[in-house]
Computed example of a mutant assay.
Amino acid sequence: MSTVTVKRSDLKAGEVLCSYCTARCCRYFALPIETPENWEDFDHMRWYVMHGHCSIFVDEDTWFLMVYGDCKYLLPDYRCGNYEDRPKICRSYTTDDCEYDNDGTYDRFFETPEQIWEYAHAVLPPKKKKRKKSQAATATQKLPVVHI
């Protein structure tokens, strides 16, 4: 793996862009998720990022859950250790629009539950306040019983 940064347009005939990359495409995956519309949706997104090693981003009006983690077959020189038996998604992936020279910016990017909640507060109507239960109702309320 070369440490030289090469522009796509400067590749010589027969050269492969991957030879100049640190395998960005093999270090995470992103799945589209539904656009959040209410407090519960944003609360679920907070839960996702509370588990660490993930973030949420929006690109061209599509929301994504990005899960960070190197492919288990990624070799120290950034090549694939499972090249001959790699999944179809890897076989069909091309460098035509890969993120080799992508600046990593998105329309929106959330790394913490606090960022998600702050955004929710900015775009949603105020949450309805829950009425407090009376002391009598609280005193008679019991925890569910779990039978093992």
Results as ranks from 00 to 15, higher is better:
Asp96Val: 08
Glu111Ile: 04
His44Arg: 08
Pro144Leu: 04
Lys129Tyr: 07
Arg108Met: 09
Ala120Arg: 00
Ile116Cys: 03
Thr140Phe: 04
Val146Asp: 14
Cys21Tyr: 00
Ile56Thr: 00
Ile56Trp: 00
Val145Tyr: 08
Phe109Leu: 12
Glu34Asn: 13
Ser134Thr: 15
Arg27Phe: 03
Arg46Met: 12
Lys142Ile: 09
Trp117Thr: 06
Met1Thr: 14
Cys26Tyr: 00
Asn38Gly: 06
Leu17Asn: 01
Ser92Asp: 15
Ala137Asp: 15
Phe109Tyr: 08
Glu111Val: 00
Glu37Tyr: 03
Cys21Val: 05
Val16Ser: 15
Asp97Arg: 11
Arg27Cys: 13
Glu40Ser: 13
Tyr106Ser: 04
Val4Thr: 15
Asp96Gly: 06
Pro36Lys: 02
Val123Met: 07
Ala137Leu: 13
Asp43Gln: 15
Thr35Cys: 11
Asp59Tyr: 04
Ile56Asn: 00
Leu74Gln: 02
Gly52Leu: 12
Lys7His: 12
Ala122Asn: 15
Lys128Glu: 11
Glu37Met: 14
Val123Pro: 05
Asp41Val: 05
Trp47Ile: 03
Asp61Ala: 12
Asp85Phe: 08
Glu34Leu: 12
Glu111Trp: 04
Cys71Trp: 00
Leu143Met: 11
Glu60Thr: 13
Val67His: 01
Trp39Asn: 07
Thr140Ser: 14
Met50Ala: 10
Leu75Gln: 13
Cys21Lys: 00
Ala30Met: 03
Lys132Asn: 09
Gly104Leu: 10
Pro125Tyr: 01
Val123Thr: 11
Lys127Ile: 11
Glu84Arg: 09
Cys80Val: 05
Lys88Gln: 06
Val145Ser: 15
Cys98Met: 03
Gly14Pro: 01
Arg108Ile: 09
Gly52Asp: 10
Asn38Met: 05
Lys7Asp: 13
Thr94Ile: 11
Arg86Glu: 07
Tyr28Trp: 08
Phe42Lys: 00
Trp63Val: 06
Tyr20Asn: 00
Gln115Ile: 02
Asp10Phe: 02
Arg8Asn: 12
Val58Ser: 06
Glu60Ile: 10
Phe64Ser: 05
Thr35Trp: 04
Tyr73His: 14
Arg86Asp: 05
